[in-house]
């Protein structure tokens, strides 16, 4: 089935998907606008400060003399990219660990799971703050993404492992073994399709989770404030006590946009889950699970 047809079917028969897609598309469009911004993102006092939303500055301007809308386009682009990079990296790790651990069992499983459990119990937030204090200036955007990804795969790896373990006992796995297939082939061709629904829904959740982390860290000033992000915008707004001085637009619009992204991704996750789930896929094909 072609991707286009899947999209069409989803749009037609799944309200959540349509709404989710719309929200995400709006956010993406805003992020896309960053490429047409008249101002470089880090320049200050390019426009008159503290102007409320108006025709000239639709979302107002900041106390630092930046246009909120154009600032927002850069911020959401970086934040979204951060989420996607973290999710992609951590998915790769959790898939590798989960599938191999579940299929191989024995000592491989024990070693991988003890590493896994270490990451599950490690307190995430203090570690990130600790990294910030150790690395300071080297704590770039990319570094933060890698560290967050390394801390964000463990739960999902356990989930994937539990599915892989049940797949291992299925007869078709033995059939594959006796057809001479290698471990890699069994894990990534036979078993991967069964965990894809989980991977998709956890991707969305993981993007949301990592954006949350990034925003929280930025608000507290524990990130590289030289890259404009949603959290960074809120950080600067707080520095200038925007809420107290009535510059509400500086803080409200970033928060609204990030909430739109959260909801959009969440809706996409649940609707695509239904579509990709092997059982509903099978009943569409005409078989039984």
């Amino acid at each position: 089935m072609s991707t286009l047809r899947i999209l069409r079917d989803l749009l037609r028969y799944n309200g959540e998907f349509a709404v989710g897609l719309m929200l995400v598309l709006i956010v993406l469009a805003v992020a896309g606008c960053s490429f047409f911004s008249p101002y470089p993102p880090m320049d200050v006092y390019v426009v008159p400060p503290d102007v409320p939303p108006s025709w000239e500055y639709p979302l107002g301007t900041t106390s630092r003399g930046q246009d909120v809308f154009w600032q927002l386009t850069f911020a959401i682009r970086n934040t979204l990219l951060f989420g996607i990079v973290v999710a992609a990296l951590s998915r790769v790790i959790s898939l590798l660990v989960g599938l191999i651990s579940g299929y191989k069992g024995g000592w491989v499983d024990r070693i991988l799971m003890s590493i896994n459990d270490t990451f599950v119990v490690v307190p995430l937030f203090p570690i990130l703050v600790l990294f910030y204090f150790i690395m300071r200036d080297e704590m770039t955007w990319a570094m933060l993404a890698i560290i967050t990804a390394l801390l964000g795969w463990a739960y999902d790896a356990r989930l994937i492992r539990s599915i892989a373990m049940s797949l291992r006992t299925r007869e078709f796995t033995r059939q594959a073994v006796f057809s001479g297939m290698s471990t890699g082939k069994i894990v990534f061709q036979e078993h991967l399709p069964f965990v894809l629904p989980i991977v998709f829904s956890t991707t969305m959740n993981n993007i949301n989770w990592s954006i949350g982390i990034e925003v929280t860290l930025s608000v507290l000033g524990f990130t590289d404030i030289n890259t404009p992000t949603i959290g960074g915008m809120i950080y600067w707004a707080n520095q200038h006590t925007a809420m107290v001085s009535g510059i509400w637009w500086w803080i409200t619009f970033p928060i609204m946009l990030v909430i739109m992204l959260f909801i959009g991704l969440f809706l996409l996750a649940i609707s695509m889950n239904e579509y990709i789930d092997p059982r509903s896929r099978l009943s569409r094909l005409g078989g039984q699970a």
Binding site: D9, R12, Y13, N14, Y275, S283, G286
Partner: peptide
């Protein structure tokens, strides 16, 4: 009667 994403069976 199964109706899933527009396919009736």
């Amino acid at each position: 009667k199964v109706k899933l994403f527009g396919i009736d069976r």
